[in-house]
Design a protein around this nucleic acid. Sequence first.
DNA 1: ACCTGAACACCGTTCAAGT
DNA 2: ACCTGAACACCGTTCAAGT
Lengths: 198, 198
Amino acid sequence: MPTPDRTSLDDIVAAGREILEAEGPAKLTMQAVALRVGVRAPSLYKRVKSRDDLIGLIAESAVSDLALLLQNAATSAPRPDAREHLIALAHEFRAFARANPAGFHLIFASAPSPTSPDVTLLARAAQPLMEATAQLAGPENALDAARTVTAWANGFISMELAGAFQLGGDVDRAFEFGITHLAEALAAKPLSSEPSSS
Amino acid sequence: MPTPDRTSLDDIVAAGREILEAEGPAKLTMQAVALRVGVRAPSLYKRVKSRDDLIGLIAESAVSDLALLLQNAATSAPRPDAREHLIALAHEFRAFARANPAGFHLIFASAPSPTSPDVTLLARAAQPLMEATAQLAGPENALDAARTVTAWANGFISMELAGAFQLGGDVDRAFEFGITHLAEALAAKPLSSEPSSS
DNA sequence: ACCTGAACACCGTTCAAGT
DNA sequence: ACCTGAACACCGTTCAAGT
């Protein structure tokens, strides 16, 4: 009779992700993961090709969570104003990064490598953003606008997490400043709402 | 008579940086660096505290180059228009990232760690940008505006280097779209120049 | 004073042998 | 079929012994 399974791929990925968030990439060793799921390190190779493969799976798991979060934010609260909608998405994005800094870093700040998450997943996560920018900037500028917003949010949060904002000032205020000006700049035609009284 | 020095800290950092750019972080081993400077691995510890320390020094060396590049760009070509000046700086930034992808990644996409470059150096590198945004957005918004532009440029280039723009479209066009709209949005008062005929 | 070989701890990975 | 101990290759780092 073959041995019953003592762990699973999902368990392994979840354990790895927890270790990564709690202790950082250096502590994410095969032995640590194995210990956490109650198995010896060599057994992990029955379900995972390599440590890099495991890291890739962790990244995909984080992307999935992000996609879910953005989708919920987009569909739950009704937001008639496209600008406010975009701003709400940016805040969700930032909240995810704060709750999963290592996962965020894995998704957006990883060097191009076999570790990177599947392209399709990232595209799906970006879907709500694409819709928001399409509404704001018009369909023909939706892609460029989405890239502008994603790049800004990604860069801002990366720098925030890395502690790169060292010149003082209020970082929250800088975030509001950025997303407000972006939303206004991307609007296809200048609207006559309030122009962000600073 | 003591042995004459067979290498130097500068040699070691330069060798490390070359290996990093040419072969990636995984190949940046103490042995590889030692081999390149003509010494055995243990000797490196006479000038460097650890591998992480070496990586930090490599990052600082890259920051220095970036600061020099931006300063030259700011002072050499006379640019009366603040918007054009900002756009020129963004292009210099992107050119640096393309010429030094691993160095760029080390500076801006590294996790917060002892590996991170000195804060003062980064602030110095950002100086020309601060001046440009001060001129564009006014002194009281200079910091927020500089953070917006830096975040966008950093995020855009990180994603570009990571191959994260997979949805097709012209990436160069997206870069122009982004910097143009940012420059326009950050201008303190709406100017009546040409509004970026797309 | 710098350099080295030898050694240690640690890690990813493989594999034959168990059940 | 999954699990394990043993083993291998590789890496960062230390240190006593050379010059």
